[in-house]
């Protein structure tokens, strides 16, 4: 029992990202409204960003900006003192991609609304069926 609690606490970042991801997936698949689906998509992407950022954490480390930069000469950098910078870089990219996808998705939604005057998926399907 203790072991389970220990795992549950020590790895709480992973449980967080998994639950967020499931919320996002649920919203994309089960929601009827396209804006809600898009919000779900964003939650899914954010969950993955959270996962990457939590990888980069290191206990007792600081942000990856070399401290002795201003003219204090060259001392060896101890990598243990700084967080892992790579996931931060990758997530900057992923955030940008998420924003870009969101922009395109909203643009499509605007087009969709102009065409059907609703964003509920079932109502749109009804309209298509009636047109045929």
């Amino acid at each position: 029992m203790d072991a389970i609690i220990e795992i549950a606490i020590a790895k709480y970042n992973y449980w967080m990202y998994i639950s967020l991801m499931m919320i996002g997936l649920y919203a994309i698949i089960a929601k009827n409204n396209f804006v809600k689906k898009i919000i779900g998509m964003n939650i899914l992407q954010t969950a993955i960003i959270l996962f990457y950022i939590s990888i980069s954490a290191k206990r007792g480390a600081t942000i990856p900006i070399i401290r002795h930069a201003e003219g204090h000469g060259h001392e060896a950098v101890n990598a243990m003192e700084y967080m892992n910078p790579l996931p931060h870089v990758l997530m900057l990219t992923a955030i940008v991609v998420a924003v870009a996808t969101l922009g395109v998705a909203l643009a499509l939604t605007v087009r969709l609304y102009a065409r059907f005057e609703t964003l509920e998926e079932d109502e749109i399907n009804d309209q298509i069926r009636e047109a045929q």
Partner: peptide, 24 residues
Amino acid sequence: ALEFPVWGDPNAPAHLHVAPEYLE
């Protein structure tokens, strides 16, 4: 996830391979 490294573990593989080279 049970096999993932613990949060904040400085000896996780991700911190040991390429990242230190960047930092150093």
